[in-house]
Amino acid sequence: MIISVASGKGGTGKTTIATSMAFSVEGAVQLLDCDVEEPNAHLFVRPDITGAEIIYTPVPEVNMNRCTLCGTCSEICRFNAIVVLGETILPFTELCHGCGGCMLACPEKAIRETGRELGVIEYGSRKGLEFIHGKLRIGEAMAPPLIRKVREYAKPGFLTIIDAPPGTSCPVIAAMSGADFILLVTEPTPFGLHDLKLAVGAVKLLDIPCGLVINRSDIGDGRVREYALAENIPVLMEIPFARGIAEAYSRGEVLAQISSGWKEKFQELSERIKNIARQKSAGTSYA
């Protein structure tokens, strides 16, 4: 089962929820940090990293001995990533989306693929929790292919918890699609509500059941709750603002481990999620 923890707005407590749930649930659990632009979960999990894998995206390399400068490759490329210029051919690898079209289309078989580094995936564990995260190379623009690679580490039979990036565009979709449940984390403020609505739009598009955690639930106003009620989104947990929680977060401490009672609440949260996801899949199989 895969639970993706997401939020439209950044800084609402996604990582707090994802790490707390990961440490609270008994049994085989994995945490995948897919916020590859700014991964933070490792600061809380503090895993022993046991391995790493550098991730590349394929980009073309031209064998000039074979190339006849016919220009077919630049014709098929919609990203202007390969172009004939006078007597030479120039790949602009940072524009390449790795579709492989130029290599397939080249009538001389003059193109082979090499790699552009997207970033690195590191993996390890702590207290029985399996941990995997991706780190986007600084200066690299394309996060989704790296996120998809991190997701390949998801194992069947595990509870896989994904810490998704903020926003609602392509990186978030890459971290949410195919999940069994999406847990949205928000705060009850106008910014929180506005960005929550966007995130719910993305969840609806993917047609995945979702629920809400309201963080810092006693600041702000009641509009997030009203919205959740109107949209029939269950509010699964509320976390009141406490300076102690904010301070513990700032030191990289996991909520479920610092104060009594939270571990049980996160266990209960994961049980409620499992029930909703089960009902949903049973419902669709009848339909």
């Binding site: 800084g11 990582t15 632009e37 700014e38 933070n40 600061l43 600084i138 200066g139 977060y249 700032s250 030191r251 990289g252």
Partner: peptide
């Protein structure tokens, strides 16, 4: 920036990008 381990970590990466 915000004064947390995450804030420090994220600030370092984005500062490196701006530097580039």
């Amino acid at each position: 920036a915000e004064p947390s381990l995450s804030g420090l970590h994220d600030m370092e990466r984005v500062a490196q990008l701006a530097h580039g």
